[in-house]
Design a protein around this nucleic acid. Structure first.
Lengths: 332, 332
DNA sequence: CTGTTAGCGCGTTCAC
DNA sequence: GTGAACGCGCTAACAG
């Protein structure tokens, strides 16, 4: 492998000059610069990033903790992260945690080992033991940004949409369509994001003078399978809901499926709404009413925030990005 | 940051002994080992992977080149890769190329820079200039394994299913359902994988004594959008096909959508089949007949092959994994 | 503007 | 079984 020494010898300069020419060319005389570049070209030299990172004490790599790589919602978020990373000379290490604490910790360990400089956490869970009263990230935590989900108490930099508002708007939309028995299939109970969505749902009901029926609230795990199963349960009740609001599109698609299995029609018998606006939402049958999240932007902003953090100019910012109600045929 | 020196001092031994204790404990006396481990625990020492990789000239990282991170087909393949990688102490760097040569090359560059040790290529395109007559990978190519797709001429290690057989079986299934006007919405024309699927389709038609109608062959780009558009075109013909076989599930879902838009019924008016068996296939309306690919296994095997290559015991193996015909309601 | 020098943290000789 | 010494390839500090 050709190293910086070889180039120096070939160009007739010192290794320091080669290094300088490559990192800040303007600090080098034009004539020597040309010699060096010629030597680089001739030798086919490529700087060894392993050595450079070692020396600079920066891996220029970030880990993205994804709860489930199979969940299509995350794809565009990761794409946003990745684009922003590449633009800044960073790489993205993929961390599929399957919601397992052990795997989260293994990936977090990469930061302690200096394999990665920081973390972007897409799920609700943070891989640290958190003391009861902690509200700010302790000094021994690595640079960490949350995207989409967030922690209820610890104030970390985060990129979100206004989940409560979005859920309220969707519920209002359903109410405006004449629904009053609106079931809500939410995600995991312990997720602050899901709590916010529930709050929005509840608020809309109360604002409209409706009562909240505990029996219409269910909790899934964001998969099509649970959307299907929970909807089946709902449809075995004596009193059927007239609308089902699911906290993500995948559960909504499972829900659609369950409703059709009972030979009921969407939206005539039961309206169904989702959340996220993943690609498939437009192509479901019928097309799914949902909340659009700017996923790529969420990812890009998260990466930018992390870069700030790594540059030492970090703060526990919360960035709220705009969402959008997308009304399609599943509710009207 | 606590380094190996600090541990050595604390344990009262040399850095060499600490290094040995951590890499091959059996080569060290039990008493010193205990001292060292105690010092490690006390100091909270974590070996600096940057330094270690530099020294060992291995990044223990591989790049996965994905044509499109938003394509759900790849998610499970990547999961398979990632699991196998983690098991062997490797990390996965995500390379979303968006089918752009420039981005492919940028990621390939990471290997030359020693940021990564090798590549797994999920798309049909290899980021190298390939001479006309080359059939084996030139020596200056980095360790490279192909998964799912493959190159038509250059013999690279690859993990595939028998695409021709699978397409033939699917076409035979459609024929057995009484169809004779079977449209085929294939992927990009220049993909060897797609050519194989076409061959299978053609063979099944000919074996059954049917003729191949050029007008029933179309080429999309594997997105729901093109599945939708191409099907719309098909449905504007005078002679409608009675079945549409799409080369992946996403196009099939777009196709379903287009057929419904014309108030035609699936499968009564037109049967539709896909390929891949992505998660959503089971939850489409109607559920989609498709070819199941063992995606996680494909990924895992690809990673294993790459590790072999990196250990110098590589060969241009082709591994064919079993597929499975999944008959659902969209064709019967 | 350029060269010399001195490490970064670790793994690996080679003596002892 | 252990320690001293060296060097991986590069960047940064300093002197000139």
């Amino acid at each position: 492998m050709v190293s910086i020494k070889d180039v120096a010898k070939l160009a007739g300069v010192s290794v320091a000059t080669v290094s300088r020419t490559l990192s800040k060319p303007e600090a080098v005389a034009e004539s020597t610069r040309e010699q060096v570049m010629a030597a680089v070209a001739e030798s086919g030299y490529v700087a060894n990033a392993l050595a450079r990172n070692f020396r600079r004490r920066r891996s220029h790599t970030v880990v993205v903790l994804m709860p489930d790589i199979g969940n299509p919602f995350y794809a565009l978020v990761v794409q946003g992260i990745e684009q922003a990373a590449v633009q800044s000379g960073y790489q993205v290490l993929l961390g599929d945690t399957q919601n397992e604490t052990q795997r989260e910790q293994a990936y977090t360990e990469l930061v302690r080992q200096r394999t990665a400089d920081g973390l972007i956490c897409l799920g609700p869970h943070i891989p640290f033991d958190i003391d009861e009263n902690v509200t700010a990230p302790p000094a021994d935590w690595p640079p960490l940004v949350m995207a989409c989900e967030y922690h209820g108490r610890v104030k970390l930099p985060r990129i979100v949409i206004d989940n409560e508002l979005a859920a309220r708007e969707m519920t209002e939309h359903l109410i405006s369509q004449g629904h009053s028995k609106i079931a809500f299939i939410n995600g995991p109970e312990d997720s602050p994001l899901c709590q916010a969505r529930f709050d929005g749902y509840l608020q809309a009901l109360l604002d409209a003078g409706k009562t909240f029926d505990r029996a219409l609230l269910m909790h899934g795990d964001f998969t099509m399978e649970t959307g299907y199963e929970l909807t089946k349960q709902l449809l075995q009740r004596e009193q059927l809901p007239t609308a089902i609001f699911c906290a993500n599109d995948e559960m909504a698609i499972g829900s659609l499926h369950a409703v059709r299995d009972q030979n009921l029609s969407v939206p005539d018998d039961i309206a169904i709404a989702g959340f996220d606006d993943i690609n498939i939402a437009k192509f479901s049958y019928p097309p799914l009413t949902t909340v659009h999240q700017p996923r790529r932007e969420i990812g890009a902003k998260a990466m930018q925030l992390l870069l700030q953090l790594l540059d030492g100019k970090g703060s526990a910012e919360t960035i709220v990005l705009p969402h959008d109600l997308i009304i399609r045929k599943s509710t009207q």
